[in-house]
Every structure is written in C-alpha cells, then in structure tokens.
Design a protein around this nucleic acid. Structure first.
Length: 582
RNA sequence: UGGGGUGUCGCCAAGUGGUAAGGCACAAGGUUUUGAUCCUUGCAUUCGUUGGUUCGAAUCCAGCCACCCCAGCCA
C-alpha cells in the first residue's frame, strides 16, 4: 500500500485498524485527502478542571496523531472571558503533561486569533453573509422560532454591508452596551436546524479576558471561532462530541463562505509547500461512567458548596482528584483504550476503571503491611527486647524490585477483623485456640483473650511456633495468613478510605439540589491511628503501595493532619470471599 | 409531534453480504505464606422489532419501536 518513508501505519499483516475513527484516518491517509497529514487538537475551554471524560478525548486526539506520525495541538477555546481563568489554564496544561502527552509547539489560544477572526468577520459582512443585528437577546430568541416552527427574519437582516461594517467597528470600539448589538451570519431563519437560523457570531461583552486583558469588548462565539481556529492551525481531523453534530453544517458553512486563499494566508502552513485543505469535524460519544457524575457545572457546585475538599478531592472524577487518589496515567490511558470510541451513547461500568488501576498497581506497586484497625497481640513466648529482622520481597512476582526489612517484636498489632470469637463459616483467620500465619513470619496460636471491664477485647495472648519460619508447620495445615505490624517499630499513620461519591448508578442530575441529595454520606472514612511498617515511609520507597490484603494506597503529601502521614486508598483489593451472613 | 443521531451477551465493544473477536463482570476448577495476583474452563443458534431482497443478512431495502441531542449573545 503506502511505502512512503514516514509511514507509521501498522506493519503489513497487521490487523486493519478497528473503530470508526481509526478507519476514517486510514482511509484519508490512503486517499491523500489531507495531503497525507494527520493533525488533531484538544480544545478545552479553561472554565473548570479536566475530568476523566476529557481524558478520553485527550487520549483519542493525541494517540491518533502519534499512531499516524501526525501532530496534536493544545488549544484553549477561550472565547468567553466571563467564565474562564488562568487557574484553569495552568491546571489543564499540568493534567495533560501528567497523562504523558506532549502537544505540538506552543500552547494555542483562540484568543490569539481574535484579530484574524475580526478580519474574517468583516469579510463575511462584505460578502453579504453576515450583518449587525439590533435585536435584544430576548427578541432574538422570539424571532428564532421553535423546534417545530420556523423563525422570522430579523428587521436588520438586509442592512447594507457598509452600514454593518461601520457598526461592527463601533462595536469593537466600545460604543455600545452589552447585548445592544450582535453580528449574525445570514443563513436561513426557516432552517429545520436551529443552529442555521442566523447564528450569533459576535457579542458585546465589556469584560477583561485572562489572555487579552482589556483589548477587546466584543468576543466571537464558539461556532464562529472553532472552525476558523482549526483552519488556522491546519487541523485535519476536528474531533468533538455528539452534541456538536448539529453544528457541523455551520462549521462547514463558515469555512465555505470565507475566501480559501485568505484562510490559507492566515494559517500556520501559509508558506509550506503543501495543499491547503479545510478541516473536517467528526463526532464521537462522550464518556459516561456508572456512579460518576461529570457535568462541569455540578462538579463546580460540589467544590463551591464545600461538598468536597476542592477540584482535587480524591473522590472527584477530575484528573487532579484521581491523581491525588492514586490513579496512574497508565491506568487512565489503558482504560480509555479499553472503553473504545463509538457514536453510541453508553454507560461504562465503573468496574472497568477499577480494573485498569488494579492491573497497573498489582504489577508495579511495592507491597507493605498496614494495620488499619489495630488489635494488640502479645507473643507470650517471644522475649521482650528481641527483634527479628525479617526480609520480605517488595513484590511477590518481581524479584528485581528487591526486598524490605520488617521487624517482629513481642508486641504486634493485627487487624481487628482478622480475629473472631464467633467465626462465620469458612473463616480462615484467627480464632480462640486456633492458628494463623503471620505473613512473612511465624505461625501463632491464640491462647488467651484479655478483656477489659466492658467485656471488649483488649488484647490477645498468642504463642509462636518458632519452627515455621519459611516452612510449613509439622503435622497440620494452617490455611490463614494475616498481616501484622510491630507495635514498637510501626509508624502511626492516617488512612482515608474512599468510596463512590454518588449513590445512584447513573447520576443524571437536573439541579444542584439533586446532585447534593445523591451524595454518598460514606464516601470518605478517615481512620486515624493506623500502623504501618516503618520502611514504607522512606522517600525511596515511593508513594504507591499495596497494603497487603487491604488495597492499593497512595501517599498524600499535601494532606495536613498534625504530623501523621496520610495515605489515600486508591482502590480496594478484589474480594471474592463469599461471606455468608450469620 | 421539525431536524440530527443511536440500538450486537449484565456493562463496554469488534464486525462493513459468507455463517457472532476481545475486555469488564459473573461462574466453576487449579496454583498461592495477600480470601490478591496468575492459570484453565464456561458464558449471544443470535445482533431493537417486523417484513423484504439473496443460495446466504448483524451487515442491503422498507416499515415500526425505544432512547439521546438541538430553541445560550455557553462551549
């Protein structure tokens, strides 16, 4: 097929690309449609933090470019100064880099094209394809008609281009108030597609912009800006979500009625020896995940009303939150790949996301022991003062990760739920008079339960079978293995257990109140006084761990809780033990 | 009920006229000093539905049904 030097397409014999977008790209490459180029872009509006849904789009755009030897721009679609800020710009750049993607060249801003956009608008006016309208926003809505009735022409629709040009210049000069005048495309007020009923191209907004300051008091709309920005950047494939499908005719209309030579002259490749081809928009379904709510407006409300700690609260589906929770870039990228890209709207089971992070962390996270709800155990035949320094592998399957030292002493802690006086059927842990293996150490037997005045269990007295280190006990089988930490050597830490933020499988809220009503009251459980094996706090040990038998945890270095280190539970271990209710 | 879309296993998703990939979940075995991981096996006679075309249809045609999006000077 294609033998050109920069052919990065799958090797001969490799499977055909699968998925409608990859196939489209393969087709376009084969037909030379865009001169053999693939140039995508990720175009966020800096009006909030990025979430896992954006990650799908980021992965799509960047990997598509990567796979095809193409380029991907980062462009802030910053045409509405009222809702945007530099804080979001910075956070978004940071998130994308964290995911491991590198955009082509400098960061782009639609706002840096404002001057060209203004000039193109004048061109449309001169061609009689746009006019300055004096309908108020309310009147404009009335004139637009409804879904089933056509709209009516604005009384200003036939204004002479010269007059519109003059008015447009005076709009820019600040002679009018917000909403007093607007620039509209002259298309078709009777179109069944409401987006084609003379859409607004420019509106007056006396507001400072985070990039352009007080330079402008008129701002172009999304529809007008996006297609031209794509054309300026020589984007070939402009990917967006399904709700923009009805906007595609407008995207194409604007570019078609602009002089192509003037577009080329404004583009990045104006001096390059390549064919100038207009970008094309393709839509795909946005990501939805069960038990997860992704609406920006609602996420913002959660932050502003203090329902969570901030945009980076580990319960938030934001990239900042997931990062702090302990999700890795690889897990998110794998997840996005697994979920696929289609045009059908689906609700992905959150179990898929959980699988992706478990898969990565199982492979890569070093192991450690942490007791979250400590129960003291005194090893009666282990002399006080004695310290056994035991070696345990950092990872059960990856010897190359080396070993860690764990100290066994007379007094240790075990998990409260690893001891039971009334064990349910199939209980494999410690019971009165029973034996259990201390992970990486000896088998112990529970000889005595020491109670407090209230009848609660204070501690356990156990005896060690010293003939069981690294080998099976003689003459019997010990099924259970439990984790433990030395009482004297262990470090006290705080652990935060996270659960899903929302109770509903498909939270599709209509109002902010509804969002708040759906919050899981147990989405965060903080456990103080947990005990961790000391070596895990060394900086060299890293921040991701599997606390054996418990889950994957990530050290939260931003959290402040009076000295104790904080670990966030990224995700629990899979638990297939079928507990039978007693 | 104007326009634009989508319907393949519980959840994602391949498939593009030649007789239903894969992943998640689930189930059953095996290994295991993590009830984890890993391994093995099972899991759609059927592709929203009804008709039609064809030797042959998830794939082509027609009708019907269900669901999603659009009436911001938001993106």
């Amino acid at each position: 097929m294609n033998n050109s030097e920069n052919n990065t397409a799958p090797a001969p014999g490799a499977a055909e690309p699968s998925g409608f977008i990859r196939q489209m790209i393969a087709r376009d490459l084969a037909s030379g449609k865009h001169g053999g180029r693939v140039h995508t872009r990720f175009p966020p509006e800096p009006n909030g933090y990025l979430h896992i849904g954006h990650a799908k789009s980021i992965c799509l755009n960047f990997t598509l470019a990567e796979e095809n030897g193409g380029l991907c721009n980062l462009r802030f679609d910053d045409t509405n100064p009222l809702r945007e800020s530099q804080e979001y710009v910075d956070a978004i750049k940071d998130n994308i880099r964290w995911l491991g993607f590198r955009w082509h060249g400098e960061v782009r801003y639609s706002s840096s094209y404002f001057e060209q956009l203004y000039e193109f608008a004048r061109q449309l006016v001169r061609k009689g394809r746009a006019y300055v309208c004096a309908l108020s926003p309310e009147e404009a809505r009335e004139y637009r008609g409804t879904l089933t009735e056509p709209g009516r022409n604005s009384p200003w629709r036939e204004r002479e281009p010269e007059e519109s040009l003059d008015l447009f210049a005076r709009m820019r000069a600040g002679e009018f108030r917000d909403g007093e005048l607007s620039l509209r495309a002259k298309i078709d007020m009777a179109s069944p597609n409401i987006n084609m009923r003379d859409p607004i191209l420019y509106r007056i907004r006396h507001a400072d912009h985070h990039q352009t300051g007080s330079q402008w008091c008129i701002y172009p709309t999304y529809d007008y800006t996006h297609c031209i920005s794509d054309a300026i950047e020589n984007i070939t494939h402009s990917l967006c979500t399904l709700e923009f499908e009805d906007h595609r005719p407008l995207y194409d209309w604007i570019l078609r009625y602009l002089d192509i030579e003037s577009l080329r002259a404004a583009s990045d490749l104006r001096d390059a020896d390549v064919a100038y081809v207009l970008p094309e928009q393709t839509e795909f379904a946005k990501l939805r995940i069960s038990y997860t709510m992704m609406g920006k407006r609602f996420l913002r409300a959660m932050v502003e009303e203090g329902k969570v700690d901030g945009w980076d609260d580990p319960r938030m589906p934001t990239l900042a939150g997931m990062r702090r929770r302990g999700y890795t870039p690889a897990s998110i990228r794998n997840f996005c790949e697994a979920v696929g890209v289609t045009r059908s709207e689906s609700l992905v089971d959150i179990g898929m996301l959980e699988h992706a992070i478990r898969e990565d962390l199982d492979r890569n996270a070093p192991r450690a022991m942490c007791v979250t709800r400590p129960l003291k155990v005194v090893l009666s035949n282990f002399e006080a003062g004695r310290v056994d320094r035991l070696q345990m592998p950092r990872h059960p399957k990856r010897e190359e990760l080396g070993s860690r030292e764990v100290s066994l002493t007379r007094e240790i802690f075990i998990e409260r739920e690893d001891f039971s006086e009334n064990p349910p059927a199939g209980f494999k842990r410690l019971v009165a008079g029973g034996e259990v293996r201390l992970r990486g150490a000896y088998v112990i037997r529970c000889d005595e339960i020491v109670r407090n005045a209230g009848g609660g269990i204070d501690e356990l007295r156990c005896s060690v079978d010293f003939n069981t280190l690294g080998k099976r006990p003689e003459g019997r089988k010990v099924k259970g293995v439990i984790h433990w930490v030395s009482a004297s050597e262990g470090k006290e830490i705080t652990v935060r257990l996270y659960d899903r933020l929302f109770l509903g499988e498909n939270p599709a809220p209509k109002s902010v109140e509804e969002v708040f009503d759906g919050i899981n009251p147990d989405s965060l459980v903080q456990l103080d006084g947990c005990v961790l094996e000391p070596g895990a706090l060394d900086d060299a040990a890293g921040d991701h761990f599997q606390f054996e038998r418990t889950g994957y945890f990530f050290r939260d270095r931003q959290a402040q809780t009076g000295g104790a280190a904080v670990f966030n539970r990224t995700i629990s271990l899979r638990d297939t033990w079928k507990r039978t209710e007693v």
